[in-house]
């Protein structure tokens, strides 16, 4: 048993209602955040974790208002720093289940550095990055995930910076669990949340989220019924990478080191690309793909095992204590060179 699993106890049977707080939800009507909140409240009872052991930590942004609406422990902190706060909390209290809620600006702009380090350290927590490709709370400036040339209040003739892809970023940081889901697909969100929450280490989920006020339908390519059928690639471990309408199935295959889209019926089954969550290199190739030239991968890109930061810290502590006994301050003060004056 790792130190972080110590103290786990049986959870009572909860319902969604148990996770709803008494605070008025203050997002704009129609915001994608409502669906995510509802999905999460619905998923929570299934995690089997006592409510008092769950903590939601967020930064600043519309998305980061989240903790106020969850009837668990919560901390709405400062812009971008939620991963660092959560790291400190985890090191202090490894028995807690921590969720970090962040936005594309919070997590990848001002907090990009902390995101990098929490992922590489593999701190045991779940990160939900609500990607609406815009700064919602500050009323609609472009964000680091906005497309090049994005016209917003701060970029009246189009933005000049190229976007970052959250999945590629996470994988580049050494993330051990990376998934993507969509605010309009509640069952899939539910599944991804459970997978990420069960992951040992940092579970990173990008949630494509609609900001209907400042960036409506930014993800229409996967919302629109027709387009979704054309482009959505559901990743399932051990299954071939097939997508598209039933009468026109397409396959994602590897040609040399380059992913290619072909008609499924044109290639022998043996050459299909079988999704393997344990293959981080394959995940890195998938992460970069997007419509229109490629399908949009949705699901778990990678899930691998790696040492967990706070486990190592606590193991060092326990080793020191078991080898030399707990510290004694009086002994510490008199250790080394001392002299007596009488």
């Amino acid at each position: 048993m790792s130190p972080s699993e110590a103290g786990a106890k049986e959870a009572p049977k909860y319902t969604k209602k148990d996770f709803e707080s008494d605070q008025d939800v203050r997002w704009c009507p129609g915001c994608g955040d409502y669906a995510i909140l509802s999905a999460l409240q619905k998923t929570m009872p299934d995690l089997g974790i006592p409510k008092e052991n769950i903590v939601f930590i967020s930064g600043i942004g519309c998305s980061s208002r989240f903790p106020y609406y969850m009837n668990t422990y919560g901390f709405h902190t400062i812009h971008g720093r939620a991963p660092a706060i959560a790291t400190g909390l985890r090191v202090a209290r490894p028995e807690l289940k921590i969720f970090v809620v962040t936005g594309d600006g919070d997590g990848l702009s001002i907090g990009g550095n902390h995101m990098l380090h929490v992922l590489r350290r593999n701190v045991n927590l779940t990160i939900l990055l609500f990607n609406n490709r815009i700064y919602g709370l500050t009323k609609g400036q472009y964000s680091p995930t906005s497309e090049l040339g994005k016209v917003t209040k701060s970029t009246p003739v189009g933005s000049a910076d190229r976007p970052v892809n959250p999945l590629s970023f996470a994988l580049g940081c050494g993330a051990t669990f990376v998934a993507r889901t969509v605010d309009r697909n509640i069952p899939h969100m539910d599944e991804m949340l459970k997978r990420a929450a069960a992951h040992k280490g940092t579970g990173f989920i990008e949630i494509l989220q609609n900001c209907n006020v400042y960036n409506d339908l930014a993800w229409n390519v996967i919302y629109d019924r027709e387009s979704k059928v054309q482009h959505e690639l559901r990743l399932e471990h051990g299954k071939p990478l097939l997508f598209g309408p039933p009468d026109d199935r397409r396959a994602l295959i590897m040609r040399g080191v380059t992913p290619k889209v072909v008609r499924a019926k044109d290639v022998p089954e043996s050459t299909l690309w079988i999704h393997d969550e344990t293959n981080v290199n394959a995940a890195k190739l998938l992460a970069d793909l997007f419509a229109p030239d490629f399908p949009i991968p949705v699901g778990v890109l990678t899930a691998v095992e790696a040492p967990v930061y706070e486990d190592l810290i606590l193991q060092q502590e326990q080793k020191a204590i078991s080898e030399r006994g707990p510290g004694d301050i009086a002994k510490l003060l008199t250790s080394g060179d001392t002299w007596k004056i009488s």
């Binding site: 930590i57 901390f75 902190t77 400062i78 720093r81 660092a84 706060i85 959560a86 790291t87 400190g88 909390l89 985890r90 090191v91 202090a92 209290r93 807690l96």
Partner: peptide
């Protein structure tokens, strides 16, 4: 902020 997280804990 890590220190603050620890205090919160």
């Amino acid at each position: 902020t890590a220190a603050i997280g620890a205090s919160f804990g």
